[in-house]
């Protein structure tokens, strides 16, 4: 984040140069919104009991993050400093309303499952945080990329946590979607016929009893804590000194 904002922009900016690439890849691991910047944790915990809703949530956040950054960056010279928070909130709220109505029309079961958490993207600190830290001071195209990068970093954690919790909690992957597959243990009834999905559909460890603890939202705290541990022991520069 800091490196991208501080370096001087060259005379003729390439459309997709090295700096632009770091904007996209940096938030995925070393500057991840959830595990390093500690932004947007609320929804990461509550929606990740299954992979499919987490994936939908991730797509929604990438969309809102990218386009709110773009719009804010376009308007950045026109927004008075005193009311900038309210202007940003209105931009985000408009985009979230769009996502909400679209999801309601496209996939109602998932909409019911995510319930208030789609609305809570408005107060998701990632979106606000990137607007304040990046989009208010940078050109539209780079803000757009930064928004996509941070949305993807958030989505990555969401999907990883969702996958771990679903495999160990229900023994399945992508339950509730068209490509639901049973992975380990005895699967619940709504799984599609295991014969049609080939060997991936066959349950491997039939003796495994589903761990209901992983389905509870508390489990997400422990999964993310382990992710943080892994990430920081891999890269000691990230260790919290305070």
């Amino acid at each position: 984040m800091a490196t991208a904002t501080e370096t001087k922009a060259p005379k003729k900016e390439p459309l997709f140069g090295k700096q632009e690439r770091t904007l996209l890849t940096d938030p995925l691991l070393d500057n991840n919104p959830i595990t390093i910047q500690v932004l947007g944790v609320c929804s990461a915990l509550a929606v990740t009991s299954l992979v499919y809703p987490s994936l939908v949530m991730a797509v929604a956040v990438v969309f809102v993050c990218a386009f709110s950054s773009l719009v804010t960056s376009l308007l950045r010279n026109a927004i008075p400093k005193a009311v900038r928070l309210i202007v940003q909130l209105v931009i985000i709220a408009t985009l979230v309303t769009l996502v909400n109505e679209a999801l309601k029309a496209i996939n109602y079961p998932v909409y019911k499952q995510l319930s208030v958490y789609i609305g809570l993207i408005i107060t998701n600190c990632i979106v606000m945080g990137r607007l304040e830290a990046f989009a208010m001071a940078n050109k539209p195209w780079r803000s757009f990329l930064d928004g996509i990068g941070n949305g993807l970093g958030y989505g990555l954690i969401l999907v990883v946590v969702g996958a771990i919790r679903e495999i160990f909690g229900k023994g399945t992957l992508f339950a509730g979607s068209g490509i639901a597959m049973r992975f380990i243990g005895p699967g619940p009834e709504f799984m599609i016929d295991t014969a049609t999905v080939g060997q991936w559909g066959n349950s491997w460890f039939g003796w495994y009893a589903n761990n209901n603890f992983m389905v509870m939202s508390v489990a997400a705290m422990f999964v993310i804590a382990v992710l943080i541990w892994w990430q920081r022991s891999r890269n000691p520069k990230l260790v919290d000194i305070s």
């Binding site: 541990w229 920081r232 022991s233 919290d240």
Partner: peptide, 8 residues
């Protein structure tokens, strides 16, 4: 453990 300090 250092990696778990603070946030972890």
């Amino acid at each position: 453990p250092p990696a778990m300090r603070g946030l972890g």
